[in-house]
């Protein structure tokens, strides 16, 4: 007689999902699109820079050291690389602020859409996705046209006599924030709308019935119930925002660098591919840590509710 273990093994063998050749396409995709490139970046980060770009196949931890430290060219002592750290900090800060702005704008937008009649909802959804049809670069230049010194914002404000000289918005952090918030807003609206649409609005009525004001209903009922959408939206905005390249280079004017601009510098003018690789991996680590902290916090609040 077969033991339970044997039966389980036989069932396992029969299970079509366990035949390796059927999973080959998926495994190949994962290898060539995700694990492989990452492994190359990791290996490069431990090599020595070549003199005209590229790398020399010679082990060196130097790239990782210079992610955070500067080596004094005279006495070889290490000191913290202030420039790098301030760029890290700027990037994280701008990404967080972008996430908050898109949340502040996207949440009411999603609420508005979810409370429309079923027929018109699709139209609103369609309008939200229209910007996706246009190239990112073009959208960014459109923002540039609006906020530059001779742009529509400054022109109108000056014509109205509110300001006498144009406000310098372009090439500041504010410009980068405006650009990123505009570009990533749909990424916040869509997931928040998706959970908002599933919200049972009778619960909102029940809240009002039990003496909750509008603000309390929002905070105690709507927000906890659409939190999965808010978490998803925040992740979707934060990750591309921290690695944004086009928007900060066009609107920040190269003065106000973000991480991607710094990385690009290493592969271009800097001719330091190992440092570029090490910085790339650092970005990934920052994102990972940020997500862990964020999701854990969001989750524990959920637990407190019940």
């Amino acid at each position: 007689m077969a033991t339970a273990e044997e039966i389980a093994k036989a069932a396992d063998r029969r299970d079509v999902r366990n035949r390796w050749y059927l999973s080959a396409p998926a495994l190949l995709t994962i290898f060539f699109a995700a694990v492989g490139p990452l492994a190359i970046v990791l290996v490069y980060s431990f090599l020595t820079p070549g003199s005209y770009g590229d790398v020399k196949w010679q082990f060196s931890p130097e790239a990782w050291v210079s992610v955070l430290f500067e080596r004094d060219i005279f006495d070889d002592t290490l000191s913290l690389a202030g420039a790098h750290i301030s760029i890290f900090w700027r990037s994280v800060k701008l990404a967080i602020i972008t996430t908050l702005i898109t949340l502040a704008l996207g949440f009411p937008t999603a609420y508005f859409m979810a409370t429309r009649s079923e027929k018109t909802r699709d139209l609103w959804l369609f309008l939200i996705t229209i910007p996706f049809w246009t190239n990112l670069l073009i959208r960014t230049f459109a923002v540039l046209q609006i906020i530059r010194n001779e742009g529509i914002v400054n022109t109108v404000l000056m014509k109205l006599g509110i300001i006498s000289a144009p406000i310098q918005i372009l090439y500041t952090d504010v410009a980068i924030l405006i650009g990123m918030a505009y570009v990533y807003l749909p990424l916040m609206v869509l997931p928040v709308y998706a959970s908002m649409e599933k919200l049972d609005f009778r619960l909102v009525e029940a809240g009002y019935d039990l003496y909750a004001s509008r603000w309390q209903v929002l905070r105690r009922i709507i927000f906890p119930l659409v939190k999965p959408g808010v978490i998803a939206g925040s992740i979707l905005v934060f990750i591309p925002a921290i690695g944004a390249y086009v928007t900060p280079s066009v609107l920040g004017g190269g003065k106000n660098m973000m991480l991607s601009n710094l990385i690009e510098l290493q592969f271009g003018q800097g001719r330091n591919w190992p440092l570029g690789s090490a910085l790339s991996i650092t970005v990934m680590l920052i994102v990972m840590v940020a997500l862990l902290v964020y999701v854990r916090n969001a989750g524990s609040k959920e637990m407190r509710h019940g």
Binding site: D200, R202, E205, A206, L210, Y211, P224, L225, E302, H305
Partner: peptide, 20 residues
């Protein structure tokens, strides 16, 4: 508005708060 009325409702669907 409903939150200013000393009237409470037992909803047909109960409408209990699922996160509490």
């Amino acid at each position: 508005p409903p939150f200013k009325r000393p009237v409470n409702t037992v909803f047909q669907s109960y409408a209990l708060f699922p996160h509490m």
